[in-house]
């Protein structure tokens, strides 16, 4: 089983996000980066599938800046066998632009499945995996919480509206990971040592099309200071009154 997992380097979810002086990006000072959590889940699942099969390989593909080498090594330490680093030359790129870079580099390769996280936790688009599937002409199952790949067929549980769907799809196919699919492991010391020797193919991605521009990044609107209505259950009637008469939400 040849499995591809696309990962993204993102600021940690605990990071405080400050807008940089140019007003278009974030101030990197003090911001820790990690593999986007849903991508990490996808990666863990791919490694588990490979380990259970006792054969095949997991290739990590990362479109990102030179610094993403750190997240790529982390992925290799978690059990991926090799990596492709698609180096971002800079410039704004929407989900379609990112997906094109990935799809163009995946198209000629052989694989059974491509796994993505359901969304990155920076851009929050939930889009790249689905677009890559379309560009490659492959079926896609999103929001996957359980996955089995066997004999050229994938069976996935998908978190749909109003229930869990059991979806069957012919491989090769694309899956996007939802929480619940797997619990990412901490790399072992041995894994970290081995990761240093695993191959990383580096390819410079082409410049973006320029059809999309990030004009501005702003901090979110501040919420007006609220009020403490009171203490304990005695404050409940006052709260209900405020919700009805002032906020008018009930």
């Amino acid at each position: 089983m040849e499995l591809f997992v696309c990962i993204k380097r993102v600021p940690d979810s605990a990071a405080k996000i400050r807008v940089a002086a140019d007003g278009k990006g974030i101030d990197p000072a003090g911001v820790e980066h990690v593999i986007s959590p849903y991508d990490e889940i996808a990666l863990e699942k791919a490694v588990q599938i490979k380990e259970a099969a006792g054969a095949g390989a997991v290739t990590v593909i990362c479109f990102g800046p030179a610094e993403a080498t750190k997240e790529i090594r982390q992925a290799l330490a978690m059990g991926a066998d090799k990596a492709i680093h698609l180096k971002d030359p800079g410039g704004a790129r929407g989900p379609l632009g990112v997906a094109r870079v990935l799809a163009d580099n995946i198209r000629a390769r052989k694989f059974d499945a491509i796994l993505f996280g359901r969304q990155s936790i920076d851009g929050d688009n939930s889009a790249v995996g689905i677009i890559v599937a379309q560009l490659l002409g492959l079926p896609v199952v999103s929001l996957v919480t359980k996955l089995e790949l066997k004999d050229g067929v994938g069976v996935a549980h998908r978190e749909a509206e109003g229930g869990t769907e059991v979806v069957e799809v012919k491989l090769p196919a694309v899956f996007t990971a939802q929480r619940g699919l797997a619990e990412p492991r901490y790399p072992s010391i041995k894994g970290i040592m081995m990761a240093k020797k695993k191959p990383v193919e580096e390819i410079l991605a082409p410049a973006p099309s320029g059809r999309l521009e990030i004009e501005k990044l702003s901090p979110p609107a501040e919420r007006a200071a609220g009020k403490i209505v009171g203490e304990g259950k005695a404050a409940v009637p006052a709260l209900v009154k405020l919700l009805r008469q002032e906020a008018k939400v009930i």
Binding site: G94, P95, L96, S126, A127, I130, I131, Q134
Partner: peptide
């Protein structure tokens, strides 16, 4: 940008080579 829209929006953007502005 619902569960359905998050599947369809990106797919439509890919099929029509359009920019996607999500959520």
């Amino acid at each position: 940008a619902s569960v359905v829209g998050k599947d369809l929006g990106p797919a439509l953007a890919a099929a029509t080579q359009s920019a996607l502005l999500a959520d």
